[in-house]
Nucleic acid binder design. Structure first.
Lengths: 246, 246
DNA sequence: CGATCGTTTGACAAGGGTCAAAATGCGTGG
DNA sequence: CCACGCATTTTGACCCTTGTCAAACGATCG
C-alpha cells in the first residue's frame, strides 16, 4: 500500500499500533471498543502529575500533550510530546510512578488501553511503542548535547514528521503544528527568542514554511543532510510508507 | 541493615538486583552461576555496535562502559555509563536492535543474564533496572536542556554517586572515577576545556576534590542545592542506604 | 628517556541568552 | 463589524557562557 497518507482514515492509535505489530480482529475490536470510553482534557491541564502512581495505561486519541519537568527555580524542560496514537504510562514493573508531569498542550482526548496478554500482538505493539519512545529519548539526548540550534530544530522536525506519518496524521511534508515557539524552546533547550530567530533564518533559506497550525518542510532533503538524519528501526516492511516525499 | 557500605562484599549485580526486588535463593544461585561464565573486554573495545541485533541480555560485572552515538561529522554524544551491576540489552519486543554503541571505557567483564520467567523476582528486578535507566535518560535530557555547565556536573555526579551506592561501589562521598574529562565533556554536552575550567572552579569553591581514579564530593549538600536534586523513586525501604553522608 | 595521553592555560571568537519594547494575530464581547 | 485584551511573534542592543585553537605542562609506560 503505497497510497498517499490521508487524514480522514482510521483512528491514529489503530493506524499506528497495527503498523507496529500484527493485530488480529479481536485485538482490533478491543482497541476500537476501548476508544469508545473517552476522557477529555482542556489545554494546559495536567493529565498525570509527576510522582503519581500509575494504575492503567492510556492512549492519546486526539490533540497533543507533553511530558515535562519543572526545575526548582522554575526552568522547564519538555521531555517529549505525545501525539494521537501515543501511549501513556506503559510499564513493566510493580509500583510504577510517573517520572514526569504529563500536560495537555492542546485539548486532548484519551482512552484507557485494553490489557494485553503476554505474547499477544497487542503486547508486541505496546512493547514496540515503548522501544520507540526510548529511541526518541536517546535522540533527544543527542540533540541537546551536540547539535546547534538550527540542527536541533531540523532534527526534531524530521523526527516529528516521522511520528506523525506513522500515525497517519501528516500528508507528505506538511505537518499539523499546534506548538508555540516557547514550547519548542523548552523542548530544544533554547530560549523562545532564539528559536524565533533561528526559524526565521531557516525560512529565509528555504528550509521551512509555516502558517498558523501548520509547518511545512520545504526542503526535507537538505534538512536531513544538515543532521545526517537516520530513521529509527521499524518492523520489516514498514519503511515504505515513510517515504512520502523523496 | 544500616551498616556502612563496603566494597569487598558481594558482587555488584547481586547487591543491586537484590536491592531492587526480592530474590529467592534459587534466583540468587542462578545469578551467581551466570556470573561464573565471564567475558572480558579491553578498554576502548566495542561491546555492542549500534544497529546490532540483540540476542541476549548481559550484566556488567566489573569496569565501566558507556553507550554512545557518533554523528555524521564525528561529534560524539555519550548517552550514559554502565557500571558494575548494570544490565545491557534488556528489551521486551521481538526483533530488538541496539539503539546505540556500547563501548568499554575501562577493561570490562560481563556475563549473560539468567532468563527470568514472567512474575519472578528476577523479572521484577530486570524491569526495575529498565525503569531506572529510563529515569536516568529523562534526567539526562533535563541536564542537557536546562542546566549550566557547573549544574550539569553537580547533577551528574550526584546521580552517579547514587548509582554507585546502589551497587555497593562507593563509600560515602568518595566515588571511584575512571573517566577522563573528555568523556565527561561528551556526556554533558560540553568541551573538555570547559569541563576542565568548571571542575577547577568547583574545586576552588570546596565542592569537589579529585585524585587520580577518585572523585570526592566535598560538599554534597551544596551540590544538591545547586540543582534541587531529587533522588529517583526506589522500592520501599530502600531509601535509607543512600544517606551515606547527611 | 622519548612517546603518548591527559590536564591545564591563554587569547580570542561566537553562539545563544537577557531584557525590554514593539508589532502582530486572534478570540471575545459589544 | 469594530474595539479591546491577551497571547504570541518579532526586533534591537547588549552581555555572558561556552567553544576554538594552540601551546605548555605533567604523568605514565615501555
Amino acid at each position: 500500500m503505497r497510497a498517499p497518507n490521508r487524514l480522514a482514515g482510521p483512528s491514529p492509535i489503530m493506524t499506528r499500533l497495527s503498523r507496529l505489530a500484527k493485530l488480529n480482529d479481536a485485538e482490533r475490536a478491543a482497541l476500537s471498543a476501548a476508544a469508545t470510553d473517552r476522557r477529555h482534557w482542556p489545554a494546559r491541564r495536567e493529565i498525570v502529575p509527576e510522582g503519581a502512581p500509575i494504575r492503567e495505561s492510556c492512549a492519546i486519541l486526539s490533540g497533543w500533550a507533553c511530558r515535562q519537568r519543572i526545575l526548582h527555580d522554575g526552568r522547564r524542560q519538555i521531555l517529549n510530546f505525545l501525539i494521537p496514537g501515543d501511549l501513556i504510562g506503559v510499564s513493566h514493573h510493580g509500583n510504577p510512578v510517573a517520572s514526569a508531569t504529563t500536560l495537555a498542550v492542546t485539548d486532548v482526548t484519551t482512552c484507557v488501553l485494553p490489557s494485553a496478554p503476554a505474547g499477544s500482538g497487542l503486547a508486541e505493539a505496546y512493547a514496540f511503542c515503548a522501544a520507540l519512545e526510548d529511541h526518541h529519548n536517546l535522540a533527544q539526548i543527542t540533540r541537546l548535547g551536540r547539535l546547534s540550534a538550527a540542527e536541533r530544530i531540523a532534527d526534531w522536525l524530521l523526527e516529528t514528521q516521522e511520528r506523525l506519518l506513522l500515525a497517519g496524521l501528516a500528508v507528505g511534508d506538511e505537518l499539523p503544528f499546534p506548538l508555540t515557539q516557547e514550547f519548542l524552546a523548552d523542548t530544544l533547550g533554547l530560549t523562545s527568542v532564539h528559536v524565533n530567530r533561528t526559524l526565521q533564518a531557516m525560512r529565509h533559506n528555504g528550509l521551512l514554511a509555516s502558517r498558523s497550525g501548520t509547518m511545512t518542510l520545504t526542503d526535507p532533503q537538505r534538512l536531513r543532510e544538515m543532521v545526517g538524519y537516520r530513521a529509527p528501526h521499524l518492523p520489516g516492511a514498514l519503511q515504505d510508507f515513510e517515504q512520502g516525499s523523496m
